[in-house]
């Protein structure tokens, strides 16, 4: 018989619940990512064809014709009254736990959610997830990233994801509202910009939002590019080459000014004594921190105001889940016993 007070058979899990992509990392060393899509078959026929009652991630995106597709945290929050989105969040977390090998195990879970979602939907999130893991902590994404990096003091974390850019100042305590900001234009907004620009300039080509995202991920850059971006796009069945350097450049630059403004304001509002240290330790995480040239460009843009140093962290896509895992492993067991 297992001793209920023993922690030997516990499985710890860190989950980064993203607006586009969710990641799970476990104490047994597993890591897995699932696109944050959940779909239910539209009707009986679709259910029979799919052979299942619920579909997740990339598969759900692929099969969207046959599904009622949900991307529950799009826009960074769960909408009040969107019961299906809540169910989708719950299902997604259940799926991540399963993918992480957590079924039938005693679990300790930390979930990082977009900062704005934490403010507005804390309880809804917790309820959505409760069925799967009663022993669970919810924290904001950028805080989970900071914890994982061990940068608990004198750092600014900017998590540039799909739906949100989350800012968080670390100064040795759990960040509160003064230390956090969210912007609602991130990777998705770049996709949208790129999509519109391409459709406008090359109306004859077939471009989808999905293609726009892939183009951004493959060729995205800010500042000046050493190479031209030449791609082949489908035009009535044939592939035709286009130079889309300008479109890529403009679309990617779209998210920069608000990031600069917010960084300046956040740091400007901090204790003047610590401001120089903060300015020198600005860390970029999240999928869109991989836009080429971003850290350098931000550093250069800030020069006329206050010299700052932006750096990209390693493994920006998994840092949130790893941080959440580190946090849940460090959390004393007494805490969970009181839950």
């Amino acid at each position: 018989m297992s001793d209920p007070t023993s922690t030997d058979d516990l499985l710890y899990m860190g989950i980064d619940l993203g607006t586009f992509r969710s990641v799970v990392a476990t104490s047994s060393g597993q890591e897995a990512a699932v696109l944050s899509y959940v779909g239910w078959p539209k009707d009986f026929v679709a259910r029979r064809a799919l052979g299942k009652d619920i579909v997740y991630g990339a598969e759900a995106l692929d099969q969207r014709q046959a599904l009622n597709l949900h991307r529950p945290l799009q826009g960074g929050v769960l909408r009040e009254g969107t019961a299906l989105d809540e169910q989708a969040v719950a299902a997604l977390i259940g799926h991540l736990i399963e993918v992480g090998g957590g079924q039938g195990r005693r679990l300790r879970v930390a979930v990082g959610v977009p900062a704005e979602c934490l403010r507005i939907n804390k309880l809804a999130m917790k309820q959505a997830v409760g069925a799967y893991a009663e022993k669970m902590i919810v924290v904001s994404e950028p805080f989970a990233v900071a914890y994982g990096l061990g940068t608990l003091n004198n750092a600014v974390i900017i998590d540039i994801g799909a739906g949100t850019v989350d800012f968080c100042i670390m100064h040795g305590t759990v960040p509160d509202e003064r230390d956090q900001r969210s912007l609602l234009s991130a990777g998705d907004a770049i996709d949208q910009q790129l999509y519109e620009r391409l459709r406008e300039r090359i109306p004859e080509a077939t471009v989808t939002m999905n293609m726009a995202r892939q183009l951004k991920e493959t060729y995205g850059f800010v500042g000046t590019s050493e190479k031209l971006v030449k791609v082949k796009l489908p035009v009535s069945g044939k592939m035709v080459a286009y130079n889309i350097t300008d479109e890529i450049s403009h679309a990617c630059a779209y998210i920069v000014p608000p990031i600069i403004e917010t960084t300046m304001r956040l740091i400007g509002a901090a204790d003047p004594e610590y401001q120089p240290r903060l300015r020198n330790n600005i860390l970029l995480s999240g999928g869109c921190s991989q836009l080429r040239g971003l850290a350098d460009y931000l550093t250069r843009q800030m020069e006329p105001f206050e010299p700052c140093r932006f750096r990209c962290i390693p493994d920006p896509l998994n840092a949130g889940a790893r941080g959440a895992l580190a946090l849940v492993k460090d959390m004393p067991e007494e805490f969970f016993n009181q839950l």
């Binding site: 009622n68 960074g76 009040e80 009254g81 969107t82 019961a83 299906l84 169910q87 900062a115 704005e116 934490l118 403010r119 507005i120 939907n121 804390k122 309880l123 809804a124 309820q127 904001s140 989350d166 800012f167 960040p175 509160d176 509202e177 230390d179 956090q180 900001r181 969210s182 912007l183 609602l184 234009s185 907004a189 910009q193 779209y254 998210i255 608000p258 917010t262």
Partner: peptide, 29 residues
């Protein structure tokens, strides 16, 4: 481009909202 709307972060330990519970989750769609 449209200036992205700005949402300021505010973490609160209070329950932000009395939640509305929906009896039949399908009816919204």
């Amino acid at each position: 481009p449209i200036s992205p709307p700005v949402a300021q972060q505010q973490t609160t330990t209070e329950l932000p909202f009395p939640r509305l519970t929906l009896a039949a989750p399908e009816f919204a769609p």
